[in-house]
Design a protein around this nucleic acid. Structure first.
Lengths: 375, 375
DNA sequence: GACGGCTGGGAAAAGGGTTTCCCAGCGCCT
DNA sequence: AGGCGCTGGGAAACCCTTTTCCCAGCCGTC
């Protein structure tokens, strides 16, 4: 250390000892062959750099012949404008950060891919940051992203539980996807689990089921709690009651699904439908039901949640389940972010509808059901 | 269009009509509040920008007091150096592209996270690009990344099958992870499936199994073919033969696992071990064995591949399986890339060792076995 | 013929940070 | 007193692209 406290702010390209290495000494994989600049193009075309810029961007008034000469030169030199120079001047980087707070899981992945897709279509590049649930790491990424002058930020978590808002030292548009911010002024996008639960209850009632049990994950997970609450409400609205008189909270596992199914059978031997809070639980339930001699769907209908293909389709029988449209959610998050970047003000939690995917476990002719080629 | 062919090269921030919008008209979410520059810091500290730069970076010779004044000013203004300006000057962006060629799947995800982790530790930011198997999209991303002057590129696919090398119009270090390049001069990192197969065969032989069948995926998948080949070789080396006299190629599905297990039982009723090319196949086999009245592991040992937790641990009994250490593979890919960026020449395919995870399905006391809280 | 307007294009600044070169001032030695 | 060397810091160039401003030349018109 040459001076005290000289390590603030943290700098890119600096060694442990705080000396750094001269930034001009930057060996490249293949040496030499500096990329062509617009001055090179201009020189080859016999014009000034300014004119070349106009030609390449269709600005200003140029003789068609001149414009063509410049374009030819650019093609010849394989000119590719330096986005950093453009960004420096324009004040926009055309990049956004995608922070996943709790590692990338089964749920956050589709969100992430949907967002990446929509942003790519909007000519934005995406910085991926996986904080693995570490607040320190999160702050590190936030600083890095701000140094890179990202235009906006998408925050996603592995579950739907609310999270405290990101601490941002500078004003940048942020959209929360999947796990909403606890600050209602923030823009958050979540799957409409209440609607999802109602889809399932309506479907089961419509197909003649009356004694419906609900097996789900831990009560302290908002996903489990919300689905359970609205399952109960939807049944009450229809004048029905939950089989067993209560929700079976437990874990998000097949083992719990097997166990809970047996408990539900014991509590109400005439139960005719199990609505499970996840496909894993439903699959466990399917195994337990089969081994207990109950046929699905003729004796008991079975519904899962998540439309996790490998579970839902490998289950015997394949599961009717709720698809949260997470890719679409990610895509929407990206669109909201781009609006915010353009200056459209927004705020609040937006709930995106779920979709019921009907397969054999509820014994209804599946419309557009499972294609044998998918998976 | 103002001129013919004026849309080359494609530009960021440009409208359909080729007119573009003035880049100065860039509304920001929260208006005003321009980020502090080093000149602001210098002014507040009463020094020149050059001196401020030296103070912040620990370069040059400065009086400790001056340095401290600059650092104070930077803190006060919440100064954050503009990475684009730094990159412009240094010629390095400290970013890398992470191209996943065939969408992000179960296998590519850990690779991607491992790479992101290692790169983040190296102060590099990661551009995520999902080409979804589309060559056009791939070229689009390559162009975008080159405009952003990435320092390097990691290419990963969803499977281990070789892929044709990326078409790069400019020389940039590239590392292929999981799916190797068909060009042997490229740097590729793949899991050592041959070694993985041998781990399994050795384990089964060591625990007294002699009649070992191999059930796996499609023969045209290199993962299936390579594991099958080395399973056969390893058995031959030990003086044993494959139960049934052949490899059971099929699909990567539980349904095939169930079916293949029955076939293997019929072909060789005394079979005492099933080595499956994936955990999904193994899980199907586990179900089929149980339903056929064979006990696992006492009658038949069962081994999977992939160490896909939700499959391996939910299987009854939990599966002994091969872990390809994909996160480690991603991390290694990132390290190789950083070496290449620093100028270390390299080339060829590097195979990273797999790891045998022992659970109950082979009936051996598991060392550091399945924790009930994981998954 | 003088002037106005248009066309095509150049010069220069701006954006933010780093580095090189240079210089003023000071202490020390002879 | 003069010369030397060191210290601390400033001026300016540079990275690359875009944009603004300006100008030369030309045509048409009165």
């Amino acid at each position: 250390m040459t001076g005290s406290g000289a390590d603030w702010p943290p700098r890119v390209g600096r060694t442990e000892k705080g000396k750094g290495f001269p930034m001009t000494v930057t060996p490249r994989g293949e040496a030499g062959a500096r990329a062509a600049t617009i001055s090179d193009v201009a020189a080859l075309a016999g014009v000034s750099p300014g004119t070349a810029s106009k030609a390449l961007n269709g600005r200003g008034r140029l003789r068609p012949e001149t414009r063509e000469r410049v374009l030819d030169a650019a093609r010849k030199l394989d000119f590719r404008p330096n986005a950093m120079a453009q960004g420096l001047l324009s004040g926009r980087s055309f990049t956004v950060g995608l922070i996943t707070t709790d590692s990338v899981g089964r749920f956050s992945l589709p969100v992430l891919l949907g967002a990446e897709d929509a942003l790519g279509a909007g000519r934005m590049s995406v910085f991926l940051c996986d904080t693995r649930g570490d607040r320190i790491r999160e702050q590190h990424y936030v600083r890095t992203l701000l140094e890179r002058r990202i235009d906006g930020l998408i925050v996603t978590g592995r579950r739907t539980d609310p999270r405290p808002p990101l601490v941002l030292p500078a004003p940048v548009p942020v959209v929360y996807a999947l796990g909403p911010s606890t600050d209602p002024a923030d823009v958050s996008l979540v799957p409409d689990d209440a609607g999802g639960a109602r889809l399932v209850v309506d479907h089961l009632l419509a197909t003649g089921r009356r004694r419906i049990a609900h097996l789900t994950g831990p009560a302290h997970h908002s996903a489990a709690a919300e689905r359970a609450e609205h399952t109960t409400l939807a049944l009450r609205d229809a004048g029905a009651e939950l089989s067993g008189g209560r929700v079976y909270f437990g874990e998000w596992s097949e083992a719990w699904g097997r166990q809970a199914a047996l408990i539900a059978l014991r509590a109400d031997p005439d139960v005719d439908a199990l609505f499970c809070g996840s496909d894993q639980i439903a699959r466990g339930a399917a195994d337990a039901l089969r081994e207990a001699g109950r046929r699905v769907p003729s004796d008991v209908a079975l519904v899962g949640y998540d439309n996790w293909k490998v579970m839902a389709e490998a289950s015997r029988p394949p599961l009717t389940t709720v698809d949260m449209n997470l890719t679409e959610l990610g895509r929407t998050a990206a669109l909201r972010l781009m609006s915010a970047i353009e200056g459209q003000p927004a705020g609040g939690v937006e709930r995106l509808p779920c979709r019921l995917v009907i397969r054999e476990s509820t014994g209804v002719a599946a419309e557009g059901g499972p294609s044998p080629l998918r998976g």
